[in-house]
Amino acid sequence: MTVLVLLDHADTGELRATAPELVALARTLGDPVEGVWVGAAPLPAQLPSGLSRVHRVAVAHDEHLAAVVSEAVAAVVDATAASAVLLAATFENKDVAARLGALHGAGVVTDADAVSLELGHVVAGKTVLAGTWTTRVEVVAPLAAVLVKAGAAEAAAPDGVPTVVEHTVAPSYVGGLVEVVERTERAGTGRPDLASAQTVIVGGRGTQGDFGPLEELADVLGAAIGATRVATDEGWIAREAQVGQTGVTVSPRLYIGAGVSGAVHHRGGMQAAGTIVAVNDDPDAPIFEIADYGVVGDLFTVLPQVTAELRRLRG
């Protein structure tokens, strides 16, 4: 069974952190595993090991549009008779997968944290209802498109670039419907990607806009920094740091909420975390209902003490 992996990348050609995880996961699902590279960005010198081939698809319209990417992926599906496509679970890729479903008959599962092959069918595991239920979902269509959450598998090690197969997708009606007037890619923050980080520290209202103690602890833990809706609305931190149902969904090994009350919208984006730590001076904060380790206290005292103690323990 041929499994395709959409290789998300920056305009510079730099591979997104999720791509090597998807390749590793795809290897457990079928053989061969082949990559799909959409657009004109240069292929990196190394790609995740385990790819038999890479399909580079030249497109006639803006390669950032979901309609264009889905046409490119569909062309490779047709060329390879692939049975499954794995995509990173970003909002852009959800649009891509939705179009593969609506126009190419794919069965789609979003936000999977596991994928396996059972009796010839792709089965995905996912948590639903704000991380409170776990489900296993079988794709009964001949083509499965599975959007996989960051951290679902150990990343495949880098390797050389395998055989590259060139494809060209002709201009299409839908591909030309939307014009990208402006697009600005943001540079990285120097921290791990929020969606895929193993440790996430989130600041809420209780920070009063001072993320300094969170930043220092993040330096020690190698953590990503996130925020609640309140903190982004206040302009204390960039919008893309928002963790929650309409922001980034995180499921790190360790979540630390500092001054986070734990509103239901926020819980929906983090409740699947492995271990939840909360520091809040309000003993009635709802986040304590789901915290594995809760500290009722002042984050401006407690966090620096954690940072100092961890530094001390590490000598």
Binding site: A10, F91, L177, V178, E179, R183, A195
Partner: peptide, 13 residues
């Protein structure tokens, strides 16, 4: 729109 890695302005008839 504000995506994970980019901000975009899109236009269509």
């Amino acid at each position: 729109r504000e995506l994970d890695h980019a901000d975009e302005t899109l236009r269509a008839a």
